[in-house]
Design a protein around this nucleic acid. Structure first.
Lengths: 343, 343
DNA sequence: AGGATTCCCGGGAGCGCTCCCAGCGAATAT
DNA sequence: ATATTCGCTGGGAGCGCTCCCGGGAATCCT
């Protein structure tokens, strides 16, 4: 019961070629004939064979999404959920299929290139969460496969889509300064990630434009996790800053937990700004002021850029930086009723 | 710079066919020749073209994972993260590629069948989180594509892998009974899901074996979410049960929050058993007694069953039920120091 | 009116692979 | 000694599709 172009042609009284033209929406087919062929296709439920099509066209209609090994602990991070949803939605609507590559080990990772890429299985690749000096990235950029990185990579020459982490840092610093805070601390993200680095640099620059500098004693770095934020704030709290920029919402939640245990009220005793704009940030107590990044849109844009690269509409390194937005909530609103701190 | 079998053959001084035999590990190739061919392949970095291979063999080496539209709100549920990881790991190690289908709308869903399945793009399909009476499921079982459902579907004749939700309900009931509780309530999962139904039925049966019945007034259903658990417990708390089985950890967390607000201590005033065994369940305060289900293993088994179905090693409806396990922690340990309740 | 153009349509070629069969030399059986 | 088998190898056929080219009919031009 496997239908081919030839079968459809026979049923419609035309040739293989004409059916092909109809399917691919090509011109030079008489309207009556086109309608008839379409009717037969509809009636028989015919769908062209993907392998045959891909063999001759050189296109598979599949894009890959790579999430490297080390991310597994973080995989429950809502960030990835939203990112995957954005990417999935965009590839669905652009007629692509999405192949997911989660790697448990470095071997699986080095396996990717020959088994998948060289086999011509993919039209393009989106890579997330690259480390600094990621070897996968190097092997990928050497090939002629279109690749888009989500997040700024530490090497040039490759296309990427990122949010404006630097500007987010600036915005956080300026916001805290404008609220009157002068002893402003940083609960940093790992500087082994470009996101962590950019947020740090932006924050420092933001302070600088306000005529301030970041006191090294007021900076403790975490690892993006809730417990990392908790532990970092344990140390930071001793210095008693009157405001802190936590470079991720999740770390901010950990920080809030630590502050609660210390009996330090937010925002009365200390103002907190997070980064991410996670849904949970508006439900925390107090609701978290944060730098919202458009995660799903980042995924969407990555797919669009990749499609441009594949179709040849764009070439070589395309860079796209999406804006972030300051969302002010209770955690930096000192006029708010005292909801924070001990409950 | 695209290499073909013929190229490799020329370089190795043999024919296309011999190279093919070497690549596919077939017999009847002289050892010297085999070694030589292998050397050429290694040196040139040749990888056989996936499309051509799939065209003639009828196999794509790709399995699909479908997550229907309605799940999006729940997608951040750690359950799906762990499931996806299990499925991904198993398909990686079985030499398959994984294609992810997240649907935002019903249209995308109905689109799946023609565009992907009939195109022969997939060797098999894993479907999660089916609803009762899911139309997708019906259209899929009608085809000859191997399909495995994760979670018990409401129709027969289809292969599935599930955890023993029923036994989990029994274990929860018996555990609470054995601790001496006699006014035992249920914070149920939606009975529009087979998981919710099975947990309910198991719970009722577990009580029955202890000579008890579930008082309808002591049963309130939630929707798997934290806030659903919170609201359900608001109602349930008025009846003052001395023990409650929450049919998911997430709901149990919501319930704990509600109880905390009411000043009801866990486990002193009320014992709580959850269901899932999420990582967060050991970090909650108090640590949650729960029915642990092997989520990643469920995914792994689904892939294995699917591969058996694809290879023909198994046929038609294969059913696999994985055991669950009671994990006792503070939330049902009345001898524990009073950590629960108001902090 | 006759030739050039345009619009449709059909069939050959070939994408890179696997499968099948024929051939060939060497080893074994009769 | 010839007949039979077996291990190994090469090449033809064909998977279902797209692309290209050529032919026939309808339309256009001067």
């Amino acid at each position: 019961m496997k239908l081919t172009l030839e079968d459809i042609g026979r049923l419609a009284g035309v040739s293989r070629s004409t059916v092909s033209r109809v399917i691919n929406n090509q011109p030079n087919v008489h309207d009556d004939v086109r309608a008839n062929v379409l009717e037969v296709i509809e009636r028989t439920g015919y769908a062209p064979n993907a392998a045959a099509r891909s063999l001759v066209s050189g296109r598979s209609g599949v894009i890959g999404l790579v999430i490297p090994s080390r991310v597994h602990a973080i995989f429950e991070d809502p960030y990835f959920s939203r990112l995957i949803q954005g990417i999935s939605a965009a590839s669905n609507s652009s007629g692509n299929m999405l192949s997911l590559f989660l790697f448990q080990s470095a071997e699986e990772e080095t396996d990717l290139y020959p088994r998948v890429v060289k086999a011509g299985f993919l039209d393009g690749l989106i890579v997330t969460a690259t480390r600094m000096g990621d070897p996968l990235l190097a092997s990928l950029t050497g090939s002629d496969l279109p690749v888009v990185i989500v997040g700024r990579p530490d090497t040039g020459g490759v296309s990427y889509v990122d949010v404006d982490n630097h500007d987010g840092g600036v915005k956080a610093a300026v916001h805290l300064y404008e609220l009157g805070h002068r002893k402003i601390g940083l609960l940093g993200a790992p500087v082994s990630t470009t996101a962590g680095l950019d947020r740090l640099n932006g924050f420092v620059q933001g302070l600088a434009t306000c005529g301030m500098a970041l006191d090294p004693k007021l900076r403790v770095d975490g690892d993006f996790s809730e417990s990392g934020g908790y532990e970092a704030m344990q140390k930071l709290a001793k210095q008693r800053p009157d405001a802190v920029f936590a470079a991720s919402d999740t770390m901010a939640f950990g920080a809030l937990r630590a502050l609660q245990e210390h009996g330090i009220s937010v925002p009365q005793d200390m103002a907190i700004v997070g980064f991410d704009g996670m849904p949970a940030s508006e439900k925390s107590i107090p609701a978290l002021t944060t730098i919202r990044q458009p995660v799903a849109e980042t995924g969407t844009r990555a797919v669009q850029v990749l499609n441009d690269l594949i179709s040849g509409a764009a070439s070589a390194p395309v860079v796209e930086i999406l804006p972030v937005e300051l969302v002010v909530r209770q955690s930096t609103d000192s006029t708010a009723p005292a909801l924070g701190g001990r409950r």
